[in-house]
Design a protein around this nucleic acid. Sequence first.
DNA 1: GCCAACGTTGGC
DNA 2: GCCAACGTTGGC
Length: 149
Amino acid sequence: MAYWLMKSEPDVYSIDDLARDGTTCWDGVRNFQARNHMKTMKVGDEVLYYHSRQTPPAVVGRARVVREAYPDHTQFDASSKYHDPRASADAPRWFMVDIEFVEKFERPVPLPELKTVPALADMVLLNNARLSVQPVRPEEWRAVLDRAR
DNA sequence: GCCAACGTTGGC
DNA sequence: GCCAACGTTGGC
């Protein structure tokens, strides 16, 4: 089983939205690296849910992969801001997974705190600020969870 | 709201 | 295939 971190802007889709919905499809990813990470996800993989663009940004909960990569429908929708004219049903360019809500942390772990943890020094989040879907090492996952409780 | 960092596009 | 220009992300 693998571990991941997925970012969302809370005013677009927050952990509370996910808790309410139960499951959601992770549409709108338009970055090749992030897409490729989603293509390698397996059912049961663990996800850290991160809120970006809030003060401070923080890991706020957990989710789990419940459906593996399939074409992101918004790429075919001309009225969507995620529409991609280069994509076709035969040759989709963008994929998404479904995730389900697992837990909202009583104690979110803010970014400034993550930066102080030696075990997290190599975490992708702290070294490639732009990537919205990223792998997490098992020991990093453990270290984050330890601080959320 | 600013702006640095970085990914993508497209001209050559 | 290089790289400048451009657009977007996301911390502050």
